[in-house]
Amino acid sequence: MNGLVILIPAAICLGLLALVTFLWSLKTGQYDDLKGASERILDDEAPIRRTDRK
């Protein structure tokens, strides 16, 4: 029973953390251009372009 007191909140918090991370990534537009992201990784010319700022 003692173990549960720590483990259950820990499990739920981790789950919540994942949920919040997902919602954050959604909000910052990380899924808006999946095809573009997979192509951009091939581009070694301009690592951080000035124009990349959001």
Binding site: D33, G36, A46, R49, T51, D52
Partner: peptide
């Protein structure tokens, strides 16, 4: 992106390929 980035008035340009 580089074509647009050369213009002085462009702050940012980002292509969405999807």
């Amino acid at each position: 992106e580089t074509g647009l980035g050369r213009l002085p008035q462009v702050v940012s340009a980002r292509v969405n390929l999807s």
